[in-house]
Amino acid sequence: MADAHSERQTSIFSPPFYSSPTGYKMRARLYLNGDGNARHTHMSPSFVLMTGEYNGILKWPFNHKVTFCLYDQSSQNRHVIDSFRPDIKSNSFQRPHSDMNIAGGIPEFFPVSMIQQTGNGYSNYY
């Protein structure tokens, strides 16, 4: 979080993974201090399509619902779950022509102010 606030590292990536054994290669990208209009106000999770082994046999553009979940680790079960359907006209969801496409996601997913509250149930850091 400190690196995100100081803008030393604005985002972090998950390791790449496949949607199924012969599926789309992808990874998650998280802007801990927000992206775009949500910069400094919200955490912004994103979805990134990558060049994968099976791209030649997959249907393009990618048109599957993407869901992000932030799990409340306390007993209150205040999970944050949001989804989006890709804009199939966006370059983010076309067949990748380089290692990774531009990320697409949910800019205003979760307020930064809430993740910084002590005992928030989502993080061990505050």
Rank of each mutant, 00 (worst) to 15 (best):
Y125V: 10
D82I: 06
A4P: 01
H97V: 07
V48L: 09
S46D: 06
A2I: 06
A103V: 01
S20I: 12
S46P: 03
F62N: 01
P15G: 13
I57R: 14
S44A: 09
G34H: 05
K59R: 15
F110S: 06
H42I: 02
M114V: 00
Q73G: 15
R95Q: 15
H42A: 05
D87I: 04
S92F: 06
K65L: 10
N120T: 08
Y126E: 12
K89G: 14
F84L: 13
G23P: 03
G34A: 05
S90Y: 15
P16M: 11
H42M: 07
P111Y: 00
E108Y: 04
M50G: 07
W60E: 12
I81T: 13
M1G: 01
S19E: 09
G119M: 04
H97L: 14
P21G: 09
H64S: 14
Y122K: 10
M50F: 11
T118F: 10
N91R: 11
Q117A: 11
R27G: 03
H97G: 07
F13M: 02
Y31C: 13
F13A: 10
Y122S: 04
S113C: 03
F17K: 03
I115W: 00
V66T: 09
P86Q: 10
H79W: 10
F62E: 03
V66Q: 11
T41N: 07
R95Y: 06
D72P: 10
R29C: 03
I88S: 13
M100D: 05
S11G: 00
G34M: 07
F13W: 09
A38C: 09
Q117L: 02
V112M: 02
Y125S: 14
F62Y: 12
L32R: 10
F13R: 01
S19N: 04
S46Y: 13
F109I: 03
P96V: 03
L70R: 11
F93H: 07
H42F: 00
T10L: 02
R78I: 06
R85Q: 10
T10D: 08
H42N: 06
D72I: 05
H40G: 00
Q94F: 04
S83A: 15
D99P: 04
R78S: 06
N101Q: 14
K25P: 01
N77G: 14
A4H: 02
P45T: 10
S74V: 05
I81D: 12
K59A: 09
N77M: 13
G36W: 09
M50Y: 09
M26Q: 04
F13K: 05
T51R: 13
N63H: 08
G34R: 02
G121Y: 06
E53A: 07
S92G: 15
F110G: 12
S75H: 07
F17G: 09
D3I: 01
R8V: 00
S44E: 04
Y71W: 14
P16D: 12
Q94P: 12
A28G: 12
A38L: 00
F84Q: 08
E108Q: 10
A103D: 05
K89E: 15
R95V: 08
P107V: 03
I12R: 03
P86G: 13
C69W: 15
L58R: 06
E53G: 02
Q117P: 08
I106Q: 01
Y24E: 08
P96K: 04
S92R: 06
P21S: 09
S46T: 15
E7D: 07
L70F: 14
D72T: 01
Y71I: 14
L32M: 13
P15Q: 10
D35E: 04
M43N: 08
